[in-house]
Amino acid sequence: MEQFAQLTSTLAPLPIQDIDTDQIIPARYLKITSREGLAEGLFSNWNDDPNFVLNVEHYKAAKILLAGNNFGCGSSREHAPWALLDHGFRAVISTRFADIFRGNSLKNGLLPVTVDQPTWHWLLEACERDPSTEVSIDLETCTLQLPEGSGIAPVGFEVDPLAKSCMLRGTDQFGYLLEHLPQIKAWVAEHPAPVDTRPIKSA
Protein backbone atom coordinates (compact mmCIF):
# COMPACT_ATOMS: atom_id res chain seq x y z
CA MET A 1 0.00 0.00 0.00
CA GLU A 2 1.29 3.41 -1.00
CA GLN A 3 2.03 5.88 1.77
CA PHE A 4 -0.33 8.81 2.16
CA ALA A 5 0.76 11.98 3.96
CA GLN A 6 -0.23 15.02 1.95
CA LEU A 7 -2.07 15.39 -1.30
CA THR A 8 -2.67 18.51 -3.35
CA SER A 9 -4.89 17.98 -6.36
CA THR A 10 -7.75 19.17 -8.46
CA LEU A 11 -11.16 17.55 -7.97
CA ALA A 12 -13.33 15.49 -10.31
CA PRO A 13 -16.98 16.24 -9.47
CA LEU A 14 -19.50 13.38 -9.45
CA PRO A 15 -22.40 14.95 -7.54
CA ILE A 16 -24.73 11.94 -7.53
CA GLN A 17 -26.12 10.50 -4.30
CA ASP A 18 -25.91 6.83 -3.35
CA ILE A 19 -23.32 5.76 -5.93
CA ASP A 20 -23.10 2.02 -5.38
CA THR A 21 -20.06 -0.17 -5.91
CA ASP A 22 -21.76 -1.79 -8.91
CA GLN A 23 -21.41 1.62 -10.61
CA ILE A 24 -17.82 2.04 -9.43
CA ILE A 25 -16.95 -1.36 -10.90
CA PRO A 26 -19.62 -3.62 -12.44
CA ALA A 27 -19.66 -7.31 -11.49
CA ARG A 28 -18.47 -8.42 -14.92
CA TYR A 29 -15.01 -7.08 -14.02
CA LEU A 30 -14.77 -9.18 -10.87
CA LYS A 31 -13.63 -12.41 -12.50
CA ILE A 32 -9.96 -11.63 -12.09
CA THR A 33 -7.67 -13.22 -9.52
CA SER A 34 -5.38 -10.22 -9.02
CA ARG A 35 -5.91 -6.62 -7.90
CA GLU A 36 -4.42 -4.99 -10.96
CA GLY A 37 -5.83 -3.41 -14.08
CA LEU A 38 -9.27 -2.55 -12.75
CA ALA A 39 -9.25 1.07 -13.96
CA GLU A 40 -10.58 -0.30 -17.24
CA GLY A 41 -13.89 -1.09 -15.53
CA LEU A 42 -14.12 2.07 -13.42
CA PHE A 43 -17.60 3.62 -13.81
CA SER A 44 -17.90 1.68 -17.05
CA ASN A 45 -21.72 1.87 -17.05
CA TRP A 46 -21.36 5.65 -17.40
CA ASN A 47 -18.08 5.90 -19.24
CA ASP A 48 -19.57 5.71 -22.76
CA ASP A 49 -20.90 9.23 -22.31
CA PRO A 50 -18.28 11.70 -23.62
CA ASN A 51 -19.54 14.22 -21.07
CA PHE A 52 -18.96 11.84 -18.15
CA VAL A 53 -16.57 13.53 -15.76
CA LEU A 54 -13.67 11.14 -16.30
CA ASN A 55 -13.84 11.82 -20.04
CA VAL A 56 -13.62 15.59 -19.60
CA GLU A 57 -10.07 16.64 -20.32
CA HIS A 58 -9.51 18.99 -17.39
CA TYR A 59 -10.83 16.51 -14.82
CA LYS A 60 -8.82 13.54 -16.08
CA ALA A 61 -5.77 14.16 -13.90
CA ALA A 62 -7.70 14.78 -10.69
CA LYS A 63 -6.53 12.61 -7.79
CA ILE A 64 -9.56 13.51 -5.66
CA LEU A 65 -13.10 12.43 -6.48
CA LEU A 66 -15.88 14.65 -5.11
CA ALA A 67 -18.87 12.34 -4.84
CA GLY A 68 -22.47 12.63 -3.62
CA ASN A 69 -23.77 11.46 -0.27
CA ASN A 70 -23.49 7.78 0.74
CA PHE A 71 -20.73 6.92 -1.70
CA GLY A 72 -19.83 3.26 -2.09
CA CYS A 73 -23.06 1.65 -0.91
CA GLY A 74 -24.06 -1.86 -1.92
CA SER A 75 -21.69 -4.72 -2.64
CA SER A 76 -18.64 -5.34 -0.43
CA ARG A 77 -16.32 -5.68 -3.42
CA GLU A 78 -12.86 -4.35 -2.59
CA HIS A 79 -12.43 -4.06 -6.34
CA ALA A 80 -14.11 -0.64 -5.95
CA PRO A 81 -11.21 1.06 -4.15
CA TRP A 82 -8.75 -0.98 -6.24
CA ALA A 83 -10.33 0.43 -9.42
CA LEU A 84 -10.35 4.01 -8.10
CA LEU A 85 -6.69 3.70 -7.09
CA ASP A 86 -5.75 2.10 -10.39
CA HIS A 87 -7.25 5.10 -12.17
CA GLY A 88 -5.14 7.43 -10.06
CA PHE A 89 -7.51 8.60 -7.33
CA ARG A 90 -5.99 8.85 -3.85
CA ALA A 91 -8.93 10.37 -1.99
CA VAL A 92 -12.70 10.65 -2.21
CA ILE A 93 -14.60 13.52 -0.60
CA SER A 94 -18.26 13.02 0.27
CA THR A 95 -20.76 13.86 3.00
CA ARG A 96 -21.09 10.18 3.93
CA PHE A 97 -19.51 6.85 3.01
CA ALA A 98 -21.00 3.39 3.20
CA ASP A 99 -19.33 1.34 5.94
CA ILE A 100 -17.75 -1.48 3.95
CA PHE A 101 -16.43 0.79 1.21
CA ARG A 102 -14.91 3.11 3.81
CA GLY A 103 -13.13 0.22 5.53
CA ASN A 104 -11.92 -1.26 2.26
CA SER A 105 -10.57 2.11 1.10
CA LEU A 106 -8.61 2.74 4.26
CA LYS A 107 -6.98 -0.68 3.94
CA ASN A 108 -5.69 0.21 0.48
CA GLY A 109 -4.46 3.76 0.82
CA LEU A 110 -7.52 5.48 -0.64
CA LEU A 111 -8.56 8.19 1.81
CA PRO A 112 -12.29 8.77 2.39
CA VAL A 113 -12.79 12.35 3.58
CA THR A 114 -16.16 13.17 5.12
CA VAL A 115 -17.11 16.85 5.06
CA ASP A 116 -20.29 18.74 5.95
CA GLN A 117 -22.82 19.91 3.39
CA PRO A 118 -21.65 23.57 3.13
CA THR A 119 -18.05 22.50 2.52
CA TRP A 120 -19.15 19.91 -0.03
CA HIS A 121 -21.26 22.47 -1.90
CA TRP A 122 -18.43 24.96 -1.85
CA LEU A 123 -16.07 22.38 -3.35
CA LEU A 124 -18.58 21.37 -6.00
CA GLU A 125 -19.24 24.93 -7.05
CA ALA A 126 -15.52 25.71 -7.08
CA CYS A 127 -14.40 22.76 -9.18
CA GLU A 128 -17.30 23.10 -11.62
CA ARG A 129 -16.60 26.81 -12.09
CA ASP A 130 -12.82 26.40 -12.27
CA PRO A 131 -11.56 22.86 -12.83
CA SER A 132 -8.04 23.96 -11.95
CA THR A 133 -9.14 24.59 -8.33
CA GLU A 134 -6.78 22.67 -6.07
CA VAL A 135 -7.30 21.56 -2.50
CA SER A 136 -4.78 20.04 -0.10
CA ILE A 137 -5.33 17.15 2.23
CA ASP A 138 -3.05 16.69 5.22
CA LEU A 139 -3.56 13.34 6.86
CA GLU A 140 -1.28 13.99 9.83
CA THR A 141 -3.43 16.91 10.97
CA CYS A 142 -6.62 15.54 9.36
CA THR A 143 -7.35 18.80 7.62
CA LEU A 144 -8.58 19.78 4.22
CA GLN A 145 -7.10 23.07 3.06
CA LEU A 146 -9.21 25.05 0.62
CA PRO A 147 -7.53 27.43 -1.81
CA GLU A 148 -6.34 30.81 -0.66
CA GLY A 149 -9.01 33.37 -1.24
CA SER A 150 -11.80 30.95 -0.44
CA GLY A 151 -12.26 32.66 2.88
CA ILE A 152 -12.87 29.23 4.45
CA ALA A 153 -10.66 28.00 7.25
CA PRO A 154 -9.09 24.54 6.91
CA VAL A 155 -11.74 21.88 7.41
CA GLY A 156 -11.11 19.03 9.82
CA PHE A 157 -12.09 15.42 9.11
CA GLU A 158 -11.92 12.19 11.07
CA VAL A 159 -9.92 9.06 10.39
CA ASP A 160 -9.59 6.33 12.97
CA PRO A 161 -6.12 6.29 14.54
CA LEU A 162 -5.06 2.85 13.30
CA ALA A 163 -6.04 3.52 9.68
CA LYS A 164 -4.33 6.88 9.89
CA SER A 165 -1.04 5.56 11.20
CA CYS A 166 -1.06 2.72 8.64
CA MET A 167 -1.69 5.13 5.77
CA LEU A 168 0.97 7.53 6.97
CA ARG A 169 3.49 4.67 7.07
CA GLY A 170 2.22 2.95 3.94
CA THR A 171 1.60 -0.34 5.76
CA ASP A 172 -1.61 -2.31 5.79
CA GLN A 173 -3.56 -3.22 8.94
CA PHE A 174 -2.65 -6.90 8.64
CA GLY A 175 0.54 -6.36 10.62
CA TYR A 176 -1.34 -4.80 13.52
CA LEU A 177 -3.71 -7.77 13.64
CA LEU A 178 -0.84 -10.28 13.46
CA GLU A 179 0.82 -8.56 16.44
CA HIS A 180 -2.14 -9.82 18.48
CA LEU A 181 -1.63 -13.50 17.60
CA PRO A 182 -0.43 -14.38 21.14
CA GLN A 183 -3.65 -12.98 22.66
CA ILE A 184 -5.69 -14.66 19.95
CA LYS A 185 -4.06 -18.02 20.67
CA ALA A 186 -4.69 -17.62 24.39
CA TRP A 187 -8.33 -16.77 23.75
CA VAL A 188 -8.82 -19.71 21.40
CA ALA A 189 -7.38 -22.07 24.03
CA GLU A 190 -10.30 -21.13 26.28
CA HIS A 191 -12.92 -20.96 23.53
CA PRO A 192 -13.10 -24.12 21.45
CA ALA A 193 -14.31 -23.74 17.88
CA PRO A 194 -18.12 -23.74 17.96
CA VAL A 195 -18.38 -25.31 14.53
CA ASP A 196 -16.54 -27.71 12.25
CA THR A 197 -17.19 -27.10 8.58
CA ARG A 198 -16.00 -30.49 7.37
CA PRO A 199 -18.87 -32.33 5.69
CA ILE A 200 -20.75 -34.62 8.09
CA LYS A 201 -23.60 -36.04 6.09
CA SER A 202 -25.99 -34.78 3.49
CA ALA A 203 -28.71 -32.48 4.82
Binding site: G103, N104, Q173, Y176, L178
Partner: peptide, 21 residues
Protein backbone atom coordinates in the same frame (compact mmCIF):
# COMPACT_ATOMS: atom_id res chain seq x y z
CA UNK B 1 -19.97 -8.55 4.71
CA UNK B 2 -16.24 -7.83 4.48
CA UNK B 3 -13.73 -6.88 1.83
CA UNK B 4 -11.07 -9.14 0.41
CA UNK B 5 -8.31 -7.77 2.68
CA UNK B 6 -10.45 -8.80 5.61
CA UNK B 7 -11.04 -12.24 4.08
CA UNK B 8 -7.26 -12.56 4.28
CA UNK B 9 -7.28 -11.37 7.89
CA UNK B 10 -9.81 -14.03 8.86
CA UNK B 11 -7.98 -16.77 6.99
CA UNK B 12 -4.75 -15.87 8.79
CA UNK B 13 -6.08 -15.22 12.29
CA UNK B 14 -9.78 -16.20 12.50
CA UNK B 15 -10.22 -12.65 13.81
CA UNK B 16 -11.01 -9.20 12.47
CA UNK B 17 -10.28 -5.65 13.55
CA UNK B 18 -13.66 -4.06 14.11
CA UNK B 19 -15.04 -0.79 15.39
CA UNK B 20 -18.13 -1.37 17.45
CA UNK B 21 -21.26 -0.34 15.55
Amino acid sequence: GIGTSEVGHVLATQCLLQHKP
